[in-house]
Amino acid sequence: MGVRDWIEGWPVYRQLTGADPLGRGKAAESARSRALAPRTRSADRVVRSVCPYCAVGCGQKVYVRNGKVTQIEGDPDSPISRGRLCPKGSASKQLVTSPGRVTEVLYRRPHGREWERLDLGQAMDMIAERVLRTRRETWQDTDEEGRTLKRTLGFASLGGATLDNEENYLMKKLYTALGAIQIENQARI
């Protein structure tokens, strides 16, 4: 690298001799920053979604390349958030790309010390059997005075804030149909 190359590579020189006298544009760029490109530019497609963290429903743009999420940003077309995301929403890419994300069913037996992997079908069967058995054993058709109850106090539901409104709505419908009355959503609390 010669002296002339060094001087022309100096941002102050470019600022004084170029078309950027305030040094807010090209004059301030380094060779490294000129070579950078946004992660969103290389995406194969953009999928519109809703942030999963709370009940607000902020719009998101999910950038996908080769079937993998590369970036998640606020959706400026969303009438709710108008392109803005809170810190949790901005970090929601970690939900799907974190290497620590659990992607299989883990079960720890009563009094067990170790987690074991279960097949999803087996886990669903275990859950269904336990829900139906608890409902059967704790069902209250009437109270002491003969008033109709048709309910169970044997289980409850606390929907998570990472569930969207539709999922929480379906859970409310399911638990109401099963006769549960203790149904809440974490996003509302």
Rank of each mutant, 00 (worst) to 15 (best):
T142F: 02
S30F: 01
R84N: 14
R133W: 05
A128E: 04
Y169D: 08
W6C: 11
R147P: 01
A37H: 15
Q182R: 06
Y175S: 05
P87W: 03
G59S: 00
S90K: 13
N66T: 10
Q186N: 04
L178K: 02
M124N: 09
V102W: 05
R151I: 01
R113K: 15
M126P: 09
T97H: 06
P21W: 09
S49N: 10
Y175L: 14
L132W: 10
E104P: 08
A55D: 10
L95V: 12
G57S: 00
G9A: 10
L118G: 02
L170A: 13
E114D: 12
R109F: 04
A123I: 08
V46C: 09
K150Y: 11
A180H: 03
V3W: 12
V131G: 00
T134M: 04
L149D: 00
A187L: 05
G100E: 14
R136M: 13
Q182H: 09
T176G: 07
T40P: 04
E137L: 09
R65Y: 05
I127K: 08
Y107L: 08
A28H: 07
E114R: 11
D77H: 08
Q15L: 07
R48W: 07
A187M: 11
C51M: 07
C86S: 02
A31K: 07
T148A: 10
T40M: 08
S92D: 11
T97E: 06
D44S: 08
T97W: 05
L95N: 12
L132N: 09
G23Q: 00
G67D: 04
R147H: 13
A37F: 13
V56F: 07
T152F: 00
L106N: 03
F155K: 04
G154F: 01
L170C: 14
Y169H: 10
V56K: 01
E73K: 12
M1P: 11
V64S: 03
G154R: 00
M124R: 14
V105P: 09
G74R: 05
L178I: 02
K61L: 15
Y13P: 07
N66S: 14
L16W: 07
P52C: 12
E8L: 14
E166K: 08
R130T: 14
A43N: 06
R4I: 15
Q186Y: 03
G100Y: 12
R133M: 03
P110A: 11
L149H: 00
Y107G: 04
G154K: 00
T17R: 07
G159H: 02
N185R: 12
R24L: 15
E29P: 09
T103S: 15
R109E: 12
T142E: 08
A91D: 11
D20T: 06
W115F: 13
A27D: 04
S42D: 13
T17L: 10
W10Q: 15
V69W: 09
P11V: 05
G18Y: 00
R109C: 01
E184P: 08
R65F: 05
L118N: 06
G67A: 04
G146H: 01
R188W: 14
D141S: 14
L120Q: 13
L106Y: 04
E116F: 01
V12N: 13
D20K: 03
D44N: 11
H111L: 12
R151N: 00
S92Y: 02
A187D: 12
R48T: 10
S92R: 02
R45P: 10
R65P: 08
P38G: 15
K173R: 10
L132Y: 09
A37L: 11
S98H: 06
Q140N: 03
I183W: 01
